[in-house]
């Protein structure tokens, strides 16, 4: 075979279609290979969709929560206004803070309403004052700001949302990793399946292989017949499975806040091009595993 792997793959797929006629039609094995490749590609589309969706989710959570912070001020009623002003002054001179705004009583009431109901007597309760902070893209030095706030307004506590962000982002990253791991496992299982199918086909065609060696066929010629057959079958099956998987993903309900994460499973924009790489990767896996299995088996025939 040619040394250049790309050239070899192209040669196998496009060249000498009569070469694989030397191998008898193996309907059963070939059909199983095609069906398995289709099923694997279908699963791969979903694993890819899961990875990409969790990636988007992690980015969204990280982005949305990273741009805001909250300062909570718990102080006696007569000191509240003074401490709030000091906090606003500190925030106004903090690099990385683009704006700071004390929430009004109605806004605090609206925040608490889902938990405490609409009849909340905000004025009668000793609620803390909340200051909404908007960060610049580079963010601010949270530790330094916390120290300055403590010095100027002892009742102020900075919440930069890290304790919420960390587990959410970690979960999303972990799901994305599991999606990628699934893709790797699907690839590995496909390679194992194709290797077994190739070995079975070579064993079933022992007489053909011996005859071909007898008349002067090189290993590469014999292997090419099997490689071409299994690679094309895998490509065909993977293409069908990928298209079916993409159609199934497209038919999922559209992303909606009410549906949470599940309705966001799928591809967005140019991400729809990603699954189109699955048949090519499947064909490459089939090519490499068939070739390795064929050469290994052929070594037992002189």
């Amino acid at each position: 075979m040619a040394a250049n792997p790309i050239k070899t793959i192209v040669l196998v797929l496009t060249g000498a279609p009569r070469a694989d006629r030397v191998v008898p039609p193996s309907g059963h094995t070939a059909t199983l290979t095609t069906l398995t490749a289709a099923a694997m590609a279908f699963l791969a589309v979903f694993a890819l969709a899961l990875s990409l969706a969790t990636g988007r989710l992690a980015d969204r959570w990280a982005g949305a929560l990273a741009e805001t912070a909250t300062v909570r001020i718990a102080a006696p009623a007569d000191q509240m206004a003074a401490q709030t002003q000091k906090v606003l002054d500190v925030l106004g001179t903090t690099p990385g803070v683009t704006s700071a705004r004390a929430l009004g009583g109605d806004e605090i009431k609206a925040l608490l309403e889902p938990w405490l109901g609409p009849d909340l007597p905000v004025d009668a309760l000793p609620l803390p004052q909340l200051v909404e902070v908007t960060e610049a893209a580079d963010g601010f030095d949270a530790q330094g700001l916390q120290l300055r706030l403590k010095a100027e307004a002892p009742g102020a506590t900075l919440d930069d949302h890290m304790r919420w962000r960390r587990p959410l982002i970690a979960s999303a990253e972990r799901i994305r990793f599991l999606g990628l791991l699934s893709l790797a496992l699907i690839g590995g299982a496909s390679a194992a399946m194709i290797t077994l199918a190739t070995q079975a086909a070579l064993a079933a065609n022992g007489q053909v292989v011996r005859t071909l060696r007898l008349i002067g066929a090189r290993d590469s010629y014999i292997a090419r017949a099997f490689v071409r057959r299994f690679t094309l079958r895998t490509l065909l099956g993977a293409l069908a499975g990928t298209l079916a998987g993409m159609a199934a993903v497209a038919l999922l309900p559209p992303a909606a806040d009410e549906g949470g994460f599940l309705t966001g499973l799928g591809f967005a924009g140019l991400q729809w091009a990603w699954p189109l790489g699955i048949p090519a990767v499947a064909a490459a896996v089939a090519f490499l595993s068939t070739r390795a299995a064929a050469f290994r088996s052929l070594r037992s025939v002189r």
Binding site: R213, L214, I215, G216, A217, R218, D219, S220, R299, R302
Partner: peptide, 12 residues
């Protein structure tokens, strides 16, 4: 080598 054996078998 195996390929050389194949090459010679073409002359037999």
């Amino acid at each position: 080598a195996r390929d050389d054996i194949a090459r010679l078998r073409r002359r037999i």
